[in-house]
Simulated scan of single mutants.
Amino acid sequence: MENVEQEFVSMIRTYERVIYKVCYVYATPYASLGDLYQEVVINLWKAFPKFRKECKLSTWIYRIALNTCISFMRKEKNLPEIISLTQSFDRMEEDDETQAMLRQLYRMIDRLGQLEKSIVLLYLEEKSYEEIAEITGLTVTNVATRLSRIKDKLRKMNKEE
């Protein structure tokens, strides 16, 4: 059992930033980043013994993280509010203009639907259309179509601001 625990802790350390990024996109005043992160880690722990390695570990983690966050949001039944992005999850030192652009991007992403958020998050993580399809359960064609529409929607939002 101790070996399984060590393997799990190692996996969490390796993919900690990935988990935080997913949770960050879904965080609201009603579902804090810490609460979402904790739920994801709990669900990963519960599912870890059943992981059959039929897909990449990162794909499995994304799938559980996204499903956990979406389920958590459904349970809350509160409309998500636009949140301020005061801390950078990448802990990068960037100039004010870049930070302002990132805050604006995440405000716009926060206005998207749950599936749209998932797709754009995976796209920003530089996942291929095939990987996005595998994680979300969509077809590759559907991912491409939705991503094109999401980009158009974000462009329109950007012009409106």
Rank of each mutant, 00 (worst) to 15 (best):
E7A: 15
S10R: 09
S10G: 01
S10I: 00
I12P: 09
R13Y: 09
T14A: 07
E16Y: 07
E16M: 07
E16R: 14
R17L: 14
R17N: 11
Y20Q: 09
C23V: 10
Y24C: 13
V25F: 03
A27G: 12
Y30H: 13
L33E: 13
L33P: 08
L33R: 15
G34W: 09
G34T: 00
D35S: 15
L36S: 13
L36D: 06
Y37R: 15
E39A: 05
E39C: 00
V40H: 02
V41M: 02
V41Q: 03
I42K: 15
N43T: 10
N43V: 14
F48A: 08
F48W: 09
F51E: 06
K53P: 02
K56A: 10
K56R: 12
S58L: 15
T59G: 07
T59N: 08
W60E: 06
I61E: 01
R63F: 06
L66S: 05
N67K: 15
F72Q: 13
M73Q: 09
M73T: 00
R74T: 07
K77R: 12
N78T: 13
L79G: 10
I83S: 07
I83H: 05
S84M: 08
S84E: 10
S84L: 04
L85H: 06
L85S: 07
Q87K: 14
S88I: 03
R91V: 00
M92F: 04
E94D: 11
D95H: 11
A100Q: 02
M101A: 04
R103S: 05
L105I: 02
R107K: 12
M108L: 04
M108V: 02
I109V: 14
I109P: 01
D110K: 14
R111G: 13
L112P: 10
L115P: 04
S118P: 08
L124Q: 11
E125I: 06
E125Q: 14
E126H: 07
E126F: 03
E126N: 11
K127W: 03
S128E: 11
S128M: 09
Y129L: 10
A133R: 03
E134Q: 08
E134V: 10
T136K: 03
L138A: 10
T139Q: 05
V140P: 01
N142Q: 13
N142S: 14
R146T: 06
L147K: 14
L147Q: 10
I150T: 02
K153I: 00
L154A: 03
K156Y: 06
N158A: 02
N158Q: 06
E160V: 07
E161F: 01
